[in-house]
Amino acid sequence: MLKRCKTQLKKLVRAKACADVGLLDENLLRRCLQFYSTVIKLILRMVDPAFPNITLPLNPEIPRSFAALPEFYVEDVAEFLLFVVQYSPQVLYEPCVQDVVTFLVVFICSQHYIRNPYLIAKLVEVLFVTNPAVQPRTQRFSEMMENHPLSIKHLVPALMKFYTGEFYPLYIEIVCF
């Protein structure tokens, strides 16, 4: 029985190593980031046709084209960013990252566009984990976030609303569990 378990463990270790090689390939992650950047541009054009010259606050009336999108479009972007920050943060030094920063700022500052409070919390989590105190290799991404023109005027009030408003108890629940 012990021999069989050791054999199974070796197979699992090999399978994990193969999965790591495939999933953590920098070229693959860069192409995925470029794909998500294209998705982000499409979403941002839906919410403000003036993209890339977005102005905040966004129109209080949510465009039908955006409202019809499944929320997992936004969630997939957030999940991918969390994965990249954890396993391969150097990928965030691509030219298309500026659109990612705009996306995060726009939706954190326009919380009424996303009905799911857990999804807003996930976007805030992306902002948190890209802080250089948490992940030192995201220094440049964090600086881009802090120096973004929309961020300078609108991000702090939006985060205050998030942390002190209706979402804060929910965020504490997410972080604690």
Rank of each mutant, 00 (worst) to 15 (best):
P49E: 09
P57N: 03
F128E: 05
K3G: 00
E166M: 05
V91H: 07
L23W: 00
I108T: 05
T7N: 15
A133V: 04
A158I: 06
R30F: 03
N27D: 11
C176G: 02
F107H: 09
I40G: 02
L12D: 11
L119R: 01
A68K: 15
I152H: 07
P132Y: 04
M160K: 14
A121L: 00
R115D: 06
I43C: 08
P89I: 05
C96I: 07
L104Q: 07
R64Y: 01
E71A: 15
V13E: 12
P60T: 14
D25S: 09
A67G: 06
E173L: 06
D48Q: 11
K16W: 03
V85N: 02
K16G: 01
V21P: 01
D25P: 03
L155G: 05
N27W: 10
V39F: 04
G165T: 03
N59Q: 13
S65N: 14
P60K: 15
C18M: 12
L69H: 05
R45G: 05
A121K: 03
V105W: 08
Y73I: 02
L9F: 14
V39M: 11
V175C: 10
L159W: 01
Y163T: 07
K3E: 13
E26R: 11
V13H: 10
A15T: 09
L127S: 11
L23P: 00
I43G: 04
L159R: 00
E71M: 13
V39K: 12
D20N: 14
V91C: 15
R45C: 10
L12R: 09
F107S: 05
R31S: 13
P52E: 00
D20R: 15
L159C: 04
A78K: 01
P95M: 02
R64H: 03
A158P: 14
H154L: 02
P63I: 02
I43W: 08
Y168W: 06
M144L: 15
C32G: 02
T102E: 07
I62P: 04
M46N: 10
I174S: 07
D25K: 07
R4W: 08
F51P: 10
F162T: 06
F167V: 05
N53T: 11
A68L: 14
C32T: 07
I40W: 02
D48M: 10
Y163K: 01
Y171D: 03
G22H: 11
V126D: 04
Q135L: 01
P136N: 08
L12W: 03
F80G: 09
V74M: 12
F128P: 04
I54H: 05
E146H: 08
P57I: 11
V129N: 01
C176E: 13
V129I: 03
L28E: 06
L2S: 12
P117W: 05
L2Q: 09
L150E: 06
R137Q: 14
A78R: 02
C32S: 09
R4M: 07
D76A: 08
P52H: 12
A68P: 01
H154E: 06
C96M: 10
V91F: 01
Q34H: 14
M160V: 11
F83W: 06
Y171T: 00
Q34V: 15
L58R: 09
F128T: 07
R115S: 13
R64K: 09
P70G: 07
C32Y: 06
V156W: 08
K161M: 03
